[in-house]
Structure formats: C-alpha cells, structure tokens
Design a binder for these strands. Structure first.
Lengths: 198, 198, 198, 198
DNA sequence: TATGAATGAGGGTTCATTCAT
DNA sequence: GATGAATGAACCCTCATTCAT
C-alpha cells in the first residue's frame, strides 16, 4: 500500500513536471495532470493539498538531486587532486544542461505565486552559497585573480552559469558546454599570459 | 483630445507594468489594471485589443527607451574619447537598474504565451547584437584579452549583465552598480595591472 | 435642417435594415450600424432611443408600404371586376417575395425581445384582419368552399402565405409565385371537381 | 451514477428548451438555464461544451422523438385501416404543440449562429421529406385532390402546420388542434362533399 | 483510498448607452 | 446637432477544489 501510494504520487509528480515544463504552470490544469498521470481527479488532492503545493514538491525533488550531484562532483575533484573549480563549473553546466527545462520553468514562474517565492529564494541562496564556497576554495589555492571581491565574483559567476543555461539552446547553439566552461574559468583565472598574476 | 487619449493609455500602460511586475502576467487581471489606472473596465479595450496586446506595447515602449539611451551613451563616450566599453557597461547596468522591474517581468514570462515569444526573441537578439558590437570595438582597440572567442564573450557578458540586474536588488544589496561595472570590465580586460588600460 | 435630419435618420434606418437582415439583430452592433451609415456613434441616439427602437421604426416603415400596396391591389381588383381573392393572394405573394429578407428577419427575431413582441403582434393582427376580410368577401361571392370556418381558414391561409415566403427561395426554387398563388386559391375554392373553378 | 448523470442532463435540456421557447436563444443566458435547472453554473459545461451545443442536443432529441411518434402514428393508422393522412396531420400538430421549441429552431429563429445552420437545414429537409411521403401515400390511395403538384402541396402543408402551431397559442386561442387538423385535411381532400371521406 | 460529477468565483471580453466637448 | 471616449453590466466559459459514493 505504501509502495502503491508512492507510485501514484510519483506519477503525479512526473506528469506535473512534464506539463509545467512544456505548457507552463498556469496553462497546465489539474485535469491535464491527472489525465497524464492516469489517475482520477480527486486523487490529486489525496497527495497534494493544492496545485501550488505540487510545484514545491517538484522543486524539492530537483534540489535534492542537484545537491547530491554537486557533492559527488566536488568529492571526485578533491580525490583526483584536480581543480575543483574547473570541475565544478563543468559539472554545473552539465547538470543545468540536463535539467534545462525544469530550470527554465522555475525561473519563469518564480514570481507571481507568493507561496512559491520563499521556496525558490531559499533554493537560490543555497546554490549561491555553494558557488561562493567553491570560489573561496579556489581563491585559497591561488588560482583566481585577486582584483575581484568574492561577493561580486559569486554574482557574476552565477549570472554566467544562469544565462548560459537559460539561453544556450535557443541562442548560442554554437557554444559547447566545454567551451563555455573553459571561458568562464579563464575569466576568473588570474591572468594566463601574465605570470605575475597567475 | 489627443492629449487626454494618450494620458489614459499611459495610465493603463503604467498600471499594467506595475502589476505585471509585482504579481505576474497571469495573476494581474484586467480588472486589477483598470482599478490601478482608475478607469472603467471597458476603457481598457478602447486602447488595447486584449490583455496580451498591452504586454507587447510595454515591450515596445521599453525597447524604444533602451535603444535611445544606448545610442546616447555611445555617442557621449565617443565624443569624450573615453572607453566606450566601460561606458557602455555602466550605462547598461544603470538602465537595467532603473528598469529592473520590467526586465524581470519579461524574463519571467517569456515562455508560455506564444504570441509574445517572437517579440521577446527579437528584442533579445537585438540586444545581443549590440553587446557583440561593443565587444568587437573594444577588441579592435586592443583593450580586451584575446583568449575569448567573441560569441562566447558576448554570451557571458550578457549573462553577467542579466543576472546582475535580476538578482542584485534582492540578493546582493551590497553590490553597487559602480563595483559591478568595474568588475565586469576587469574580467574582460587584457591585463588589469597595465595602468594604460585601467 | 429638417431635410438633413431626416436624411441621417434614413441612412441609419437603411444601414440597420441591411445589417439586421444579413447578420441578424443581435450580431449587428450599434457600432456596425453607425459605421455603415457613416455617422458618429452618438448620433444614433439622437434619432433612436435605443437599438430596439430602430427595429420598431423599420417595422413601421415596412408595414406602411405593405398597407399601401395592399390597398392598391384591392382597389385595382375591384375596378377590373376580377376575383379580388386571387388578386390579393397573388399581390401578397409578390410583396412578400420582394420583401423576403426583412420579413425573414422579423420572423426570425420576433421572439426574445419583449418590447418588440407587442409591435409585431399588432402588425400580424392587422395583417390577419385583412386576410379575414378578403376571405369574407370571397365567401359572400360564393367562391369558397363552405366547410371551413372563417377563423380557421384565415389561420391556414396565413400559414401558407407565411411559409411560402420564408421558405420559397431556399427550399422550393422550382415553385413560381404564379403556381403557388394558384394552388392556394385552388385549395380554398368551393369544389375542385367543378371544372369551372379548377 | 448513470441515472443521476442523465437526470441532470435532462434537467438542463428541459430548462434550456423552456427558456429558449419563451425568451429566445440570445436572451436565455446560461445563468438562466442553470438556475431553471437548479444546478451550478459549472455543471452546464459538464454536459455541454457550449451554449450552442445544447441547442443541437435539443434538436436531436426532439427530432428523435418526433420520428418515433410519427412512426407510431403511421403504424397505428395502418393497423386500424384509418386514414394515415389524417392521423399524421393530427399527430404532427400535437407534437409541435408540445414541442414548440423544435419548430422555432426548424424555422431558424437562431440564424446568425453559423454552426447551427447546417443542422437545422438538414433537420428541416428531413421533415419536409416526411411530409412529402405522407402526401404521396395519400395521393396513391386516392384521398387527395389531384389539382395540386406534390412539391407545392408539401410546401403549403408545411406552412399550415407551422403557423398553426406557432401562432395558435398566442393568437387563435379559439382554434383547437382538432379543428385545425380537420380543416387541413379537408383542404387537401379530393371532395368535401363526399361524406365517406369527411 | 479512489473517483469524477458538481460547484461557483472569477476570468477576459463585448457592447448598448452616456455625456463632455 | 454631432461626436467618440468612457463606462460597467452582463455575457460565456474555465478550472481549482470539494464531497458523496
């Protein structure tokens, strides 16, 4: 019964995610979701108190996955004594690329639904903290230029990653994740040609 | 008559913009807009054929203003023989800062309303072209590091400007536009320690 | 001024009639009417108190014309000592044929607008009275079968004329007014087996 | 469940029919219909996709019923070796009297609603065909005067039935369906003086 | 627990009518 | 008198949510 219950919940979650991503939150009705999930309409309300609540659940799921992956990448980088910064950037771009749709959806709909605002804010702050941490580490290892204040650097890194994901497919088809990652790292590197700053 | 007419139109435009920004497009009803604009409900349809149309009008107005300002800044920079790049970055940050709300709205809602998609895409492409142009000019003047491909640089610059605006107020209250602008320029400069380019 | 005033009134009347006939009453807006009449919207209300009132005016105009024609026909028939009955039937069919469009409109929309009901009822009663009169005359002249009560006969005659108009063009293209008129007369004639009357 | 479902549907159908007849299609709002049917507003759209669709349903249901009744009457008349013509006329008058709405629809009270035009046209043609058939049968049996062409007779019969019903209630309260039916039959009879056919 | 018919608040939009110019 | 911008009541319809089964 527990198994069955969770299976239905997951079906609803998947259906909602799929529809939200392709049609947007407002244009995806509860009727659409239960039809996609192949359950009765009333069943939706057995698992989620409201349509808004299921978005929260989707975010939670996504962030859990992101968190897990990020940790994996960082551990892996540490183990292999590689640049955690470069690895992190690359890992994030890849993750975002894989989850582009849901990220676009979250970005798109983050305002306008008061009850979602807080959740999304928390999520972003957590993500920014992880960016800051990795920049801090890299700074300590001497790999970064020193003319940037950490907060500023974090914000700019966030912006680059963020827009890379949101716009990449549509506008910069020529840009590979590889190239983007390298360019971002390069921008933060002290100065590759100037040994005094390297 | 003409004056009165445009005044009402402008009131509706302002009201819609304000509400779209704070509540989102879907959550802002025509009833809300006319209440905010202090006109009758039917009056909305004297000036705009539909709720969707007013969004188009908002974008048009905003882009006209942006275009005008950008041209002004570039001319001014050329006249004073200053770095057009630095001036441009600063000008854009300022403009975005002043029009943060509408930019947030546009970013947020660009999907999900098919009829708006095209307009927004065009607008973004125009903006990206202007970024590319300014980077190209700076590159010719030897002020930019040469390890970045132009397309990549454009994308990253866009990302930085973009997220700076979207997130600055809420999350990085400490960051002044001044500092942000300088940091962005610095990231793209060939060599920060070279006083000639500073 | 009087002339001008009436000209505008007539333009509105014609425009309304044309639009009502082709699009129906509900689907013809006051905006449409004033556009067709090439006057300002407010002008409509200088000449008619409401949209409903203009329908009344159209009916009045039509009935005045019908009344005039009917009288002419009856006088003519009396003068030439012909069967006023046959002449009347024929005259009515012709008149209906010429005014088919507006009659269809009136028939179509006669219900549903309380304020029109009365006017149309009066008009129909006046018309029925004229039918009754002509049948009465014919009866006195011995030209009609005697197994029909006058009221019934009037109602049935009305029905035949009525549906002839409403359906003729669309459904019975083969039926000439000539044939229809003769058939109707024949039905009411005293005895078909009487060759003299056939 | 099935029973309940159809009961609500039928309540809506009855309410709509009643209101359409008394107020017309345009003046009968969905709100009116659901109020009359004593269901919630949304319930209307559980059973009918639109206000227009319920008209189609009314026509379909009505015509099915008419068809059934007509067949019954004709069979019964045949069995009892009575005049099928007389029975048919009487049956139609009775049915239309009870189902005035159908007749109004048949006569396109609702023109201007393109999607209904076709349905109504088809229905009317089918009905006219049935009138023609019954006249043909009667003709073969020698019960009808022979000076009428079949098409003309059909059109005239339609007109008599039509206006008898539509106008009887309002205008000729004195005329019973009985009397009307007899008069119509008489008009078409070969020879009224023949007591055997009277 | 699962269901889906029932619900009604609220949405965008239309249009007859008014009234200041 | 002529105008058309302004108006808001009323329309049809949607959909998140409830609840009896």
């Amino acid at each position: 019964m527990q198994i069955k219950k969770d299976e239905v919940r997951q079906r609803l979650l998947n259906a909602a995610c799929k529809l939200f991503v392709s049609n947007g939150y407002v244009e995806s009705t509860v009727s659409d979701i239960v039809k996609e999930a192949e359950v009765g309409k009333g069943t939706f309300y057995t698992y989620f108190r409201s349509k808004e609540e299921i978005v929260g659940a989707i975010i939670d799921e996504g962030m859990a996955e992101l968190s897990e992956k990020t940790n994996d990448y960082m551990l892996e980088a540490k183990d292999s004594k590689k640049s955690t910064f470069k690895a992190f950037i690359r890992a994030n771009l890849e993750f975002f690329s894989e989850n582009q749709a849901i990220l676009k959806f979250l970005n798109r709909e983050m305002s306008g639904y008061a009850s979602l605002q807080n959740k999304i804010k928390v999520v972003r702050e957590r993500y920014l903290a992880s960016l800051r941490t990795i920049l801090e580490q890299e700074l300590h290892m001497g790999g970064l230029r020193k003319d940037l204040e950490l907060g500023t650097a974090t914000a700019l890194l966030y912006g680059m990653l963020y827009s890379s994901v949101l716009n990449s497919r549509a506008d910069y088809q020529g840009l590979s994740l590889e190239k983007l990652g390298e360019s971002i790292v390069a921008l933060f590197r002290a100065n590759i040609s100037n040994p005094a700053l390297a």
